[in-house]
């Protein structure tokens, strides 16, 4: 086939492909790409309901010295560092416990641990608010009945507990997907390898460490990345339960962006926070792929 003919075929394929892509691209450009570029651009402006003045990187300078932003950043990191390792261990535990069971049993447990996700953030949040209620909630009731605590605790109103109370709810809504992924990945591990190892007298821990864990590495990596991204974006729980309080002790960057933009009308400043959040997520995802990815054998 000569070059010209090849080019002609390629051009035809390209035209057809773009025709098929057109609807998706239309939505993607209007509702993702354009807002993304506009968000970065307007973060360089003093942009409120009335004003739209170019101020360069002043929003970013203001961020560095903003104590509330700093507090929110730390809270965000606490949520991420608190939830990611627990989610991975939890999902791994459940995955290992159920993956060899009968398929109906596996389906049952997958449903159980996915239930809080499907129930929906708002429904889950209102019921936990009730559970945490200092006077009418069952948590304080149970803890007091068991004599673990003497005084009712304001789980969501006390600076010492609020963020942990939120992390616990976040955990219940985060493990469903990782469990599904681990069960699938464990099912794909070559059984003959583990059997051979067992015949050779390897104990369970050795089988796990030398065969299962390395085989699960790509899945673990994927789970770490999606859980990190999700934890960074923790918003609804906070908006519904504490509005970032008490005294910004549960505020996250996500929540702060919302507050600045939709409660205070500081659009440019909110956008600069959004940009920083995107950059942080980008860097962390990249590092996780780079470092955790080293152990991955394809």
């Amino acid at each position: 086939m000569n070059k010209q003919k090849l080019y002609k075929i390629r051009m035809r394929e390209t035209l057809v492909s773009y025709a098929f892509l057109a609807p998706a691209l239309l939505f993607f450009v209007i509702f993702v790409v354009y807002p993304m570029i506009s968000g970065v651009y307007t973060s360089l402006f003093n942009y409120t309901i009335r004003k739209f003045d170019f101020i360069g990187v002043d929003n970013y300078i203001r961020l560095v010295s903003d104590p509330i932003f700093k507090k929110s950043l730390i809270n965000t990191l606490v949520i991420v560092l608190g939830s990611v390792p627990i989610v991975v261990l939890f999902a791994l535990f459940v995955g290992l416990t159920i993956y060899e069971k009968h398929s109906a049993i596996r389906s049952f447990f997958r449903c159980v641990f996915y239930l809080p996700v499907v129930t929906g953030t708002v429904a889950v949040t209102v019921v936990w608010k009730w559970i945490y209620d200092p006077i009418n909630g069952i948590l304080n009731y149970l803890l007091q009945s068991a004599h673990i605590i003497n005084e009712p605790i304001m789980w969501l109103g006390d600076k010492r507990f609020a963020i942990w109370a939120i992390i616990i709810i976040l955990l219940t809504t985060s493990v469903g997907q990782p469990i599904i992924l681990y069960v699938a990945a464990l099912g794909n591990i070559d059984q003959s390898l583990t059997e051979a190892a067992e015949v050779d007298g390897a104990n369970r821990w050795q089988v796990f460490k030398n065969i299962k864990w390395p085989g699960l590495m790509p899945t673990t990596l994927y789970i770490v990345v999606i859980t990190t991204i999700n934890s960074f974006q923790c918003f609804s729980l906070i908006q519904l339960l504490t509005s970032g309080g008490p005294n910004y002790s549960t505020s996250t960057i996500m929540y702060l962006v919302y507050e600045k933009a939709f409660k205070l009308g500081q659009f440019g400043y909110a956008n600069s926070m959004g940009v920083i959040l995107a950059v942080i997520i980008g860097i962390i995802s990249f590092l996780q792929f780079k470092f955790l990815g080293n152990d991955v054998e394809y």
Partner: peptide, 23 residues
């Protein structure tokens, strides 16, 4: 195009929040 889709998947919605509402 494919890499643009992949990158966008990791993007937090909050970044595009204000421009999206304006759009």
């Amino acid at each position: 195009i494919f890499s643009m889709f992949i990158i966008a998947m990791a993007l937090p919605k909050q970044v595009v929040l204000v421009p999206l509402v304006r759009m």
